[in-house]
Design a binder for these strands. Structure first.
Ligand code: NAD
Ligand code: NAD
Lengths: 208, 208
DNA sequence: TTAGGTCTGTGAACGAGAACTCAATCACGA
DNA sequence: TCGTGATTGAGTTCTCGTTCACAGACCTAA
């Protein structure tokens, strides 16, 4: 492997590969070819090989990829070896749904802190987590929490983002419909549900 | 404007432009330049002009874009002139959050039907909508509902998708972590929250 | 009426990422 | 030990989308 900047698109596909591998029928075979992997995941096989080749020689020519080794390798690349703790900011409609969701553990991510501004919610215990006051965000650094999920009203999002960054957070999953300013060493991933939904009618057949 | 296939990326930006225009400070000026628009939305100004130019001459050289006209124009392109009714499939954690959300009306989309398989939920009235049995999906065609939001367990997603397509649905917003097979005339937009979250640790500074 | 400044629309250059292709590599069996 | 078939890794090509740059349209004011 030579030096290469890894495309963001590749990073985004790795979790998909990982999930595919986890749910792969354990039919005794220890290895899987890029062809088989590609079919399950609905991508092309050269894509799979190129993605994986960015990170060194993982596969074996003539054989394929060792399933267990590949899983471990992808986890290492994504830093998902040990469980990551994430903070949820905003326990509203969306926040509550996210907190109840158990699917994140496939990716070794676990929501381990919840912050609110509403006094009626602060102090309540939900899913074994005690909801804290939003001013406690500054404690995130010493608690080793560096990933945050933003599910608060758009107006407050930049303020809270600034606080998160001050507290050493390096990755933010943003559900609010606002653009968040952040230094380049902080990664912001946006999920804009409204925009995704608004795109659909365009693709409907005319007259529908 | 010549004939051009419009890039998907352009379509995806249009709702962002629309939302930006809606929240633009109404300081009396009737028009806005691509420069100003670009600043608000954090894109480059040639991008804005190119995106809009796919759909004919909307702006006025030397002046800019008439704000009200542009809003109307974008709505027309995206077919968001008259309210679109959408069906929500699955009233679980996520489905409930989506149904309560009022922000979709910015984009003239409204959830007007909810389907469930759980008998204890069927028949309940939530947000003025009566939850129906999933077998009623076939009635969507005559009700003129052609957009659906999938928020059910992954295992059932392909089955229900097939039913939705049979019922004439042409656009699906998919929250399940599975790949949905659909004919090319049906648009599927995926929102994979788990994958988005799993990407974040990769970008954290080493040692964090 | 015309000159000068502003801003759009668009062809062309550029860049990133996806798909293709094939030489190099490996397992296995003769 | 060597030949065969399978499969990777990576250089090349292709496709799509973004950025650039400028001609032309428009407004205003003298
Ligand atoms: N619910 C959805 O389906 C949906 C869809 C698309 C986008 N969103 C976006 O997600 C965000 C959350 O949506 P929601 O429906 O859960 O809203 P919500 O109003 O139900 O919940 C927001 C929660 O955040 C809390 N909050 C407000 N300010 C805060 C602060 N400064 N610090 C900590 N907590 C604070 C509020 O007390 C409330 O509990 C919004 O930006 C919304 O636009 C939601
Ligand atoms: N909740 C989250 O935060 C979250 C995050 C990421 C992904 N997801 C995905 O979104 C989907 C829904 O998640 P959830 O947390 O709301 O799950 P949930 O279990 O809370 O809700 C699922 C609902 O769908 C209903 N249902 C099941 N089969 C059905 C069918 N065939 N037809 C109609 N309804 C049916 C169930 O009765 C239930 O009410 C899942 O695929 C999940 O993986 C959710």
């Amino acid at each position: 492997m030579r030096y290469h900047k890894v495309p963001d698109e590749t990073i985004r596909r790795l979790p998909v590969y990982l999930r595919g591998l986890c749910s792969f029928p354990n039919d005794g075979s220890r290895s899987i070819s890029s062809q088989q992997l590609a079919e399950v995941l609905h991508v092309k096989s050269p894509q799979v090989r190129k993605d994986l080749s960015y990170f060194g020689d993982i596969g074996t020519p003539g054989v394929g990829y060792d399933i267990q080794k590949l899983k471990k390798h992808i986890r290492t690349i994504l830093r998902l070896n040990n469980t990551h703790c994430a903070a949820l900011i905003g326990y509203g409609n969306l926040g509550a749904a996210l907190l109840k969701y158990t699917g994140f553990k496939t990716f070794c991510v676990e929501i381990s802190a919840v912050f609110e501004i509403n006094p009626r919610k602060i102090g309540r215990v939900v899913q074994k987590i005690k909801i804290e006051d939003v001013s406690n965000i500054s404690s995130l650094r010493k608690r080793g929490i560096s990933v945050a999920i933003l599910a608060i009203p758009a107006l407050e999002s930049q303020d809270v983002t600034d606080k998160l960054i001050d507290a050493g957070v390096g990755g933010i999953l943003n559900f609010t419909p606002s653009y968040l300013s952040a230094p380049t060493n902080v990664k912001v991933v946006n999920i804009d549900i409204g925009v995704s939904l608004a795109c659909l009618p365009y693709y409907l057949p005319v007259g529908a």
